[in-house]
Design a protein around this nucleic acid. Structure first.
Length: 812
DNA sequence: TATTGCCTCGTTTTT
DNA sequence: CGAGGCAATA
């Protein structure tokens, strides 16, 4: 053996040191499709990083021939960092990217083939929502019935399933679907006209590109000899297809029928659909790592079938399971195992540890939300007294609305905390405004950015004027930038022309600066500064008396600082190579578009306890975890109960439980004031799935008393009718209901114009009785409460009616 | 055109 | 309770 080979063998032996058997098996996998089922805390990142290092050290491929994809920038950064540590050298050339940034990078190079310029703008969900709204309006759709957000989600789902508008049309069942499809078609047209892609397009267009241009496909297939995927359980059909196109044989024909879709329709020349005769076979080196039990993004079109059916999709696939957990004590794992075992659509799995049984898991029923919060705080203080760091504790909840009361309790106890999630830095209106300025300067076709900033700060350019400018631009095929140069042609009158003129001059000045920046490489920070100054944006905020504007100014300072940092951040050689021909502004916009706040978020400051949703908790771990609000309707969420999505909720529970290393407590409140007055709550069904052996003795009776009432038929508050239009004449009655612990206001329905009915005239009803109502037609009484009827109408579903107002005629 | 007040409605959200 | 939407106002 040559000394070089010996040295290499030594390196590799070193690398494999300390891995358990299945981990090592995964790292040494000879090639071909590999699925690593990595239970929570089983060392999946370890496997990924070691695998990359192994491939490089054994000379199976160079570092630049590996593509590792993740879902978050944070995960990508960590992966890169840890691979660097293992290899002891630079990871330059290694493609560690999020799905979206990898696609964006490819699209920047290939955009022209699909009719975009390289400067295409990436729309975030907010931009995309605005555009959808505009589309709906121009279709004349009622945006109350067709909410922009709802329609956008539907469109997003179509795209994630690789359905073109035409294909979506084939599936459209009712009038709602058809409107969605119309909006989708128009929306895509507008995106193209705006030279913009939304997040979904980054994936969809890349798939499209690979499917239609064999030359491009071949190039990327050859470039990556190994593809690794993190969090595979969260991939959607588009991502699945992309992986297939990159790795597998005969890529145009291997698509599973469930996932296949033909390219979106784009009017383009140079189509290159053809048989694949002569195309190199795929390398098949696809390694995916994930945990089906942690698939919690189904609502974002992630398809758990991807991981469940991996062996069917790739018949020669190897499957390796990692079940040894290095994080939690056995009681915690027992609890998690028991809960997830209730799911039927789940790979059987049994986490175990050699860390010992540990402390019992605790379940606590508290009389109300306030008491619950205080209990958690008291426990936090007790644990702190035992030496657990605040930074090692977390409070988890299903919905953000639950955080407030915990925050209040922590504040009262003077315990520092940080809330993860909420409004991100780059989503703040003022930050987005400035970015929109920059974005529009870079891409004048970006109508969404134009509409956003044209009257910000206020310049007296109202909706009508903006509408005329946009309509004029659309009608004549020019950009909004050109449109403001010809306000007369757009049909504007004197006052509007003057206002637009001011704006036009400001933009001209900014464009001048930008043009110079191309030559002299003026920094992005300077551009930000220019925007703030020239547009009067800063002056406007400074002159304001609104106290919130102070914070906005601070945010803008932060944005400036961020841009400054960006200017001085020496781009890696990689980035420069990938972005040849791009200006600093181009790169800045790309980065901000794809960067979430989590990446920007300061590392855990010492001494602070963390509050976050269960979704945000994935990947995190803490010594002590409190899972609050374990009540049916909250967790599992009522909407999930309705739509039968309990398994995903249960996986969410599994995620929550497995975040804890040593201390785990689950709490629920018998009464909770979520919106308005307190309401009776019932314990989460998941609590009853916890094995008593894993619980402490006090936990045993924490569900009794309430369980019997939970089995009582309950009114599903989410299906309750709404108060009719008209003013609050019913307020008194509504207030009385509030006093009785029922929800008030919008949950109660009073048909417009219906007068209150004297008590003695109200019909006597019984459950099961058929009734007629003036507005809702016929239905059946499902429940009676004091002053309230609950009726399931044949056409409108369940509604709650105020007895004093509802005119109901008994039918039998 | 900007401001106001009233009404509605209420998951989760890696990009 | 509180944010966002919208219609009635100044």
């Amino acid at each position: 053996m040559s000394s070089r080979a010996e040295a290499e063998a030594a390196y590799v032996a070193d690398l494999l040191e300390g891995l358990n058997d299945p981990q090592r098996q995964a790292v040494e996998h000879p090639g071909g499709p590999l699925l690593v089922i990595a239970g929570a805390g089983s060392g999946k990142t370890r496997v990924l990083t070691h695998r990359v290092a192994y491939l490089v050290l054994t000379g199976q491929c160079s570092i630049g021939e590996i593509l590792a994809v993740t879902f978050t920038n944070k995960a990508a950064a960590e992966l890169r960092h840890r691979v660097g540590d293992l290899l002891g050298r630079s990871t330059r050339g290694l493609w560690v990217q999020t799905f979206h940034s990898a696609c964006a990078r490819i699209m920047r190079v290939e955009a022209e083939k699909l009719g975009y310029t390289r400067q295409f703008t990436i729309y975030d969900s907010d931009d995309s929502k605005r555009l959808v709204k505009r589309c709906l309006e121009s279709l004349g759709a009622d945006t109350k019935r067709y909410t922009p957000n709802g329609v956008r989600n539907q469109i997003s789902d179509h795209k994630n399933r690789l359905r073109s508008p035409e294909q979506a049309a084939e599936l459209a069942a009712g009038p709602y679907d058809r409107t969605v499809v119309d909006a989708y078609a128009l929306y895509q047209k507008q995106l193209a006209r705006n030279n913009a892609m939304d997040f979904d397009d980054l994936m969809f267009r890349t798939v499209d590109l690979f499917e239609r241009f064999s030359e491009v496909r071949t190039r990327y297939r050859a470039a990556f000899k190994h593809v690794l995927v993190d969090e595979y359980q969260d991939t959607n059909p588009a991502q699945y297809r992309l992986l297939q196109l990159l790795c597998m044989d005969d890529p145009l024909h291997t698509a599973g029928s469930a996932h296949s879709g033909s390219p979106a329709q784009l009017a383009l020349d140079g189509d290159d659909l053809g048989p694949l005769a002569g195309e190199e076979p795929g390398h098949r080196n696809l390694m995916v790592v994930g945990d089906d039990a942690q698939s919690i993004y189904g609502f974002r079109s992630a398809d758990i079938r991807n991981i469940l059916d991996f062996e069917d999709d790739f018949p020669d696939a190897q499957v390796i399971r990692l079940e040894q957990n290095y994080r939690s004590t056995q009681h915690i794992l027992d609890a998690a195992n028991a809960v997830i075992a209730q799911n039927s659509d789940q790979r059987p799995k049994h986490l175990w540890t050699d860390l010992g049984a540990g402390e019992a898991v605790r379940v606590r029923a508290l009389q109300d939300d306030f008491t619950e919060a205080r209990w958690v705080v008291a426990e936090v203080e007790r644990l702190a007294g035992e030496g657990v760091q605040f930074s090692e504790m977390a409070v988890l909840y299903r919905t953000n609305a639950l955080s407030r009361i915990i925050e209040t309790a922590l504040t009262n106890a003077e315990i520092g905390y940080q809330v993860i999630g909420g409004l991100r830095f780059f989503d703040r209106a003022e930050v987005k405004d400035v970015i929109a300025y920059l974005s529009w300067l870079q891409n004048p076709a970006n109508t969404v950015a134009f509409a956003r900033i044209v009257n910000r700060p206020r310049r007296g350019i109202g909706d009508t004027t903006v509408g005329r400018l946009i309509a004029h631009a659309a009608a004549t095929g020019i950009t909004p930038l050109e449109a403001i140069e010809q306000p007369e042609a757009a049909g504007l009158k004197t006052a509007a022309i003057r206002a637009v003129g001011v704006f036009r001059d400001q933009i001209a000045e900014l464009r001048e600066t930008l043009a110079q920046s191309g030559e002299n490489d003026v920094s992005v920070a300077d551009l930000v500064e220019q925007v703030l100054r020239v547009t009067g944006y800063r002056a406007d905020l400074e002159a304001s008396s609104d106290p919130q504007d102070e914070g906005r100014l601070e945010n803008l300072d932060q944005l400036h600082a961020y841009a400054d940092e960006f200017d001085h951040d020496v781009a890696t050689a990689d980035e420069i190579a990938a972005t040849a021909g791009q200006t600093a502004l181009d790169r800045f916009l790309e980065r901000t578009a794809l960067l979430s706040d989590a990446d920007h978020q300061a590392e855990q400051e010492g001494g602070q306890i963390t509050l976050m949703t269960l979704h945000n908790a994935k990947g995190a771990e803490y010594d002590a975890v409190f899972l609050v609000g374990c009540e049916d309707g909250i967790f599992p969420h009522s909407r999930a109960i309705d739509s039968g999505e309990l398994e995903e909720e249960r996986r969410l529970c599994y995620v929550g439980l497995t975040r804890a290393r040593r201390h785990l407590a689950l709490t629920w409140a018998r009464r909770r004031a979520l919106y308005g007055p307190p309401q009776a709550q019932y314990p989460s069904r998941f609590l009853r799935e916890l094995p008593s052996d894993a619980l402490d003795e006090d936990s045993a009776d924490q569900l009794t008393g309430a369980v019997s009432s939970a089995s009582r038929p309950r009114v599903d508050m989410s299906k309750i009718g709404r108060m009719g239009s008209g003013s609050g004449k019913g307020l008194e009655s509504v207030k009385r209901l509030g006093d009785m612990g029922l929800k008030r206001g919008s949950d109660l329905l009073r048909p417009a114009g219906t007068p209150a009915m004297p008590e003695d005239e109200r019909p006597v009803l019984r459950v099961g009785q058929r009734v007629r109502h003036g507005k809702f037609g016929t239905g059946e009484v499902t429940a009676l409460e004091t002053d309230v009827f609950v009726i399931r109408f044949d056409e409108f579903g369940e509604r709650r009616l105020i007895a004093g107002f509802a005119k109901l005629t008994p039918l039998d």
